Computed example of a mutant assay.
Amino acid sequence: MTEAAPKPPAEAAPRSQKRPEMKVRPTAPILPSANIQGNALIVVIAIMAFLACLTLGGVSMVRSTAASWESQISREITIQIRPDEGLDMDKTLTQARDLALTFVGTKDGQIVDEAATARLLEPWLGTGLDIKELPVPRLVIITIDENNPPDFEAMRSLLKESIPQASLDDHRTWVDRLVSMAHTTVMIGTGILLLVFSAMVLTVVFATRGALSSNRHIVEVLHFVGAESSFVATEFQKHFLKISLKGSAVGSALAALFFMTAGFLQSHTLATPQTDQATALFGTFSVGALGYAGIFATMIVIALLTTFTARLTVMRTIYEIDTLRSDPTRADGLVN
């Protein structure tokens, strides 16, 4: 009897088999990253940011100009000599300057010549003026020590006795008006900024409630399966943070571009007398490094304010949902 040939041993099964890799599907956001409502809110926030930065820059320019006026006026006084028949104007101007410089607290005196006087009158009377043919007062500018000013009343009395045609102007009235105007401008600008921020907060509240209303079923399901209010609020917060950053960045950039363009155009038209007078009165359109830092800070404040407002609105809405669920009477009334 022939023995059966032994069967070859079966191949040993591999100890470990490679498992297929599991790919985790990325979680979709609660709110869509871009929609019509989000784009409209970006435009609204950009407009609000532009207006806020424009107001801030305007207030900064007015304050800078008023401070420059106050500094220049407080260190100078003006002696005005009215023309009179038989009066030697050049001699009288020199006499008035010398009398003023005898007082303690004066530094220097400068007589405004005929050419400079004619240039001051060019915006109103045109070019080619002959000052000698017109009854135009002449000026003497006295530089004083701001920390130790002279006795203005004594100087005024001495000038009146020595030169009847002379009058002294210490610019105190102008200084008081400039300080009052600067304070009023700051108050008006602050009020406008508060109005802009209030309008923006209300806009964000309505936009957040609209987003919650359109995604209310999702929020309720998440909240029902155990998602905490802070999680849902964080999702909305991220969404509105992106929107507010985009809108505030666009608005702030447009405001900065506006000031840069206005300053560039003004710097290239300073040769005309009209522009010189406007610059002397209202200053330049340059807001400086501090002004641009304020524009950037305004952008950050708008973004944070928008985000904080959205979070508070979501938390309050979820609280209202919990309150309705915990009160069967109110829930039944809402269903009916």
Rank of each mutant, 00 (worst) to 15 (best):
T184H: 07
R156C: 05
W69Y: 06
T2Q: 15
M200A: 13
F264C: 00
V314C: 04
H268G: 02
N215G: 10
V140L: 01
A253E: 01
D151G: 03
R177G: 08
A66F: 11
A262Y: 02
T78Q: 14
T298G: 03
A253M: 11
E11T: 13
I142K: 07
R311N: 14
L222C: 07
A303F: 01
A256E: 05
V44Y: 07
V62T: 10
W69I: 06
K18T: 13
I218E: 12
R15C: 00
E153H: 03
S230D: 15
I218M: 11
I77P: 08
L324M: 14
N39E: 04
F231R: 06
D169P: 01
E21N: 09
P9G: 06
F197D: 11
M48L: 14
V301D: 06
L159Y: 03
D108W: 01
A271C: 00
L125F: 08
L324H: 01
N35H: 12
E133A: 14
V186T: 14
D130F: 05
Q274G: 11
L101S: 06
V335R: 14
T92G: 04
T307C: 04
V175F: 11
A233R: 10
S244Y: 03
V205A: 10
R63W: 12
S248I: 08
L290V: 13
V140D: 01
T279C: 00
I30W: 05
A100H: 00
V335W: 02
D151S: 04
A46V: 07
F285G: 08
G109W: 06
S326Q: 08
I300C: 09
T55M: 08
L212R: 03
P6K: 13
P8K: 13
R25D: 12
M181H: 13
